[in-house]
């Protein structure tokens, strides 16, 4: 098995593993990823935030790679040496990419449902400038409803292509997603026709920003005022393993479970997502795993509903 060294930490991984996946196995100093999604085939390579420097190609060919490479799409070689956070060049380039991602972004976090669980927000806190150098009008689009449950807010889209990959890989019809080219590319209305599909709601979960949001949850609450609980049900279509987002005793929304990297652990169907919003539909497993540093984890260990008085006493 090839051995790769990332920021001076060496790990052995199966052949064909990407640098990013190897870094995730190490678990520290992991390059960020906005377009790569391990569960979607062909994803990655586009956003360029995961760029790293390969200072040694491999034991067999030790030459460094001439350019920074996308760690999500570059396979490790035996003896490869990679610099991520220890390379000023990488940090500089990543800052540049974050700035590019933000030049046309509306920065409307105060009214965006994604705020608090938005990867672009996290990324800008880590790498962004505190002010914008872009002085021109930002590109804008009309908001469109793609079906009755999902809203597309193209202004916020970073064109990661993940939602089109969901449409292609999880739904039976071939649906393509991007219209036009360059700066004016947009996620296309073809998706609008695909929303009937039982798996279409997963587009919301894979979208790293607030471009695709759940209309049944729209403007109901900031995510950090809701409490995530793991729950499951016997679902004929999907795994039925979900996160319920409670406010008081009310389920405001249902999403798939997210792993440490913000990726869905298993895609869920639209019935589970949009139609099962009662506690009695579900078997509650307990509080969801949320990163300690996430804003969502505040009040995390409180129970989502008032326990009957006698039980409260017992648990004291």
């Amino acid at each position: 098995m090839p051995k790769v060294t990332i920021d001076d930490i060496t790990i052995e991984v199966p052949a064909g593993t990407t640098i990013l996946e190897a870094a995730r196995q190490i678990g520290v100093n992991v390059p960020p990823a906005m377009c790569y999604y391990s569960k979607l085939k062909g994803s990655g390579g586009k956003c360029r935030v995961c760029l790293v420097k390969v200072t040694k190609g491999s034991d067999r060919d030790p030459r460094p790679m001439p350019k920074l490479v996308a760690s999500c799409r570059t396979a490790v070689m035996d003896g490869m040496e990679v610099r991520n956070v220890t390379s000023p060049e990488v940090i500089e380039a990543r800052r540049g990419v974050v700035e590019f991602l933000l030049v046309n972004h509306p920065l409307d976090c105060p009214i965006c449902d994604q705020a608090g669980e938005c990867h672009l927000q996290d990324l800008s806190y880590d790498h962004g400038l505190s002010k914008s150098r872009y002085e021109f009008e930002r590109r804008t689009f009309e908001r469109i409803d793609i079906g009755d449950k999902i809203q597309l807010h193209m202004n916020r889209c970073i064109l990661c292509y993940r939602c089109t990959q969901v449409a292609e890989q999880l739904t039976p019809e071939r649906v393509h997603g991007v219209l036009y080219r360059g700066e004016v590319s947009e996620i296309s209305t073809f998706i609008e026709q695909a929303v009937d599909n039982e798996m279409s709601g997963n587009m919301i979960d894979v979208c790293p920003v607030g471009a695709l949001t759940d209309k049944t949850f729209r403007f109901k609450s900031r995510v950090w005022f809701t409490k995530p609980m793991y729950a499951h049900r016997d679902c004929p279509t999907c795994s039925g393993k979900v996160t319920l987002w409670y406010q008081g005793a009310e389920v405001l929304r249902v999403t798939s479970r997210k792993d440490k990297w913000g990726e869905s652990e298993g895609f869920i169907c639209n019935t589970c997502r949009f139609d099962k919003k009662q506690t009695i539909d579900w078997t509650i497993e307990g509080p969801a795993d949320v990163d300690r540093h996430s804003v969502i984890s505040q009040n995390h260990y409180e129970l989502p509903y008032e326990l009957p008085v006698n039980q409260k006493k017992l648990s004291n």
Binding site: G45, K46, C47, R48, V49, G96, V97, F100, L101, V103, N104, I158, L159, Y161, V178, Y180, R181, G182, E183, V184, S185
Partner: peptide, 8 residues
């Protein structure tokens, strides 16, 4: 328009 640096 595929990759951010060139698109933006």
């Amino acid at each position: 328009g595929q990759c951010s640096p060139c698109r933006e």
